[in-house]
Computed example of a mutant assay.
Amino acid sequence: MLTRRGVLAAAAGSLLLAGCGPQGQRPDDGTSSSAPGDQNLVVGVSLELSGRGAALGVVQRRALEITAEALNRSGIPVGNLLRSVRLEFRDNGSDPEVAGRHATELTRAGAHALVGGVLGDTATAIAVAAQRVKTPFLALGFSDRIVLPLSERTYSFKLTPDATDMARRMVDLLETQRVGRVALLAEDGPHGDSGVRALREAFASSTVDLGRTVRLPAGGRSFRAAAERVAAGNPDAVIVWGTAPDSGTAARELRRAGHRGALFFDAGAVVDDTLSGANAKAVEGAYAVHPACLGGSALMATSGALVARRDFDYRYTRKHGTSVGFAPYAADALQLVAAAARKATSLDRGRLRAFLQTQTSEGIAGGYAFTADRHGGMEADSLGVYQVSQGSWTRYA
């Protein structure tokens, strides 16, 4: 039977292998010529290169630079011209107001598409501004509000998994492990809001009891009081729903507060910072739901996807010394923009948006299936379960 996953597999080559040819070669069929410098594909990027989101933002910048370099080896055929990608970076300092302002400034400066926002609130702010200036935006943050309601987010597309899919996978895991009672510690803001809502829906039809729900204070303030409230209920397990560095800090405070049971993270925790020295003991043995591209193992259905993942890992590791599980979102975002430009035969922002919402492709992080009615494109069966073992993320299921 032809499955949705099979359709993604069939489409994989067009997204993943672009820009992966031998260095220096450019397609030559006698019909294309290089575009002048002012006609390149300009992608405006607003990232958390400082502030709370820097642990995620810095790896995204690296991934974008690596992917742009790969694409520019052969060029992107758009109409009868070969174009290069030009990235324009801005540091939003993890400030939503600054991130929203960047969307407008980058569009005025000539950006054809926007990428960024690794935190839920910064990505949501960019989405609001992108709608106003009618510029396609590919978000790297976690929150359903980035692309919902769709009538107000027609120019925004989310690369990360939907909260509903992560919650269902997490509850399935808890049922398999026969956990009795769970508490939830969720970060403040739109990502935490999405997690609370999705988990309550998932637990409603589960044999596992969702007990106390506590929200972390905003702005990275002390998590001690919140952790103590959770631990006081003596749950069998605690779900920490948040992005790094909050995830590791929350785990550390939970252990200090006396919680000795299991810990479960959503995909926002999967970055080196969560496993760092200060957090290492607290997170050992913890579980995370994350796209199944982490640590070289994958649910990828095609050889093209595996080749692209290995190529990305090789180039990232060679340049930066280690590969990071969160990084492929940005690589996929840039490949999706390039693919939309090829299909649109134009850099017109409206046409790019129209072709982005028809993308069905297998990326490095997982499968995407954007439609006019669905702009949160990560497929549910792209998700896997990982466990921290001896300081590393290890595939569990």
Rank of each mutant, 00 (worst) to 15 (best):
V43K: 14
V42R: 09
G141A: 09
L352T: 03
G21A: 10
R61I: 02
D311S: 14
A237S: 07
P22R: 13
P36W: 05
G75C: 11
P136N: 01
D373F: 13
A11L: 12
D272K: 12
V98I: 15
P190N: 11
I239R: 02
G258K: 09
Q131K: 12
G120N: 09
T249R: 15
L106Y: 05
Q23H: 07
Y316S: 09
L173H: 03
P77H: 11
T394P: 12
G44A: 08
E187Q: 14
G277C: 10
R215M: 10
D38N: 13
V196K: 15
A198P: 09
T176Y: 06
R86K: 15
R4W: 00
R318I: 08
L383M: 01
I239M: 07
L216M: 14
R309C: 13
G295C: 03
S94D: 09
A251C: 10
V45Y: 06
Y396G: 12
A204F: 06
P291D: 05
R215K: 13
L334C: 08
V115H: 05
L114A: 07
P245S: 01
A365G: 00
R178G: 05
T243A: 11
V118H: 04
A369F: 09
R86H: 11
A12L: 10
D121I: 02
Q177K: 15
R351V: 00
A380T: 08
Q359F: 04
T345K: 15
P77E: 07
V271S: 13
I76P: 08
A282G: 07
L138G: 04
A262P: 01
G79V: 01
L71G: 01
A123W: 02
T122E: 00
V42D: 02
V85D: 07
A278I: 12
R221N: 10
E152Q: 15
Q23A: 13
E152G: 14
G13Y: 04
V147R: 01
V45D: 04
A18Q: 15
E48Q: 15
A54V: 07
S33D: 13
A183I: 03
L71V: 01
S46W: 00
Q39V: 01
G141M: 04
Y287F: 14
G268H: 04
L119S: 04
G6A: 15
G384P: 10
L199G: 00
A331F: 03
G350M: 09
A292K: 04
T135C: 11
R221F: 03
G277W: 02
R342W: 01
A227S: 14
G79Q: 05
T124L: 15
G75Q: 03
P36D: 09
D121C: 00
D193A: 13
T302R: 07
A380M: 09
L150D: 13
G242Y: 02
L185K: 08
M1Y: 05
G384E: 07
F89C: 08
G19Y: 01
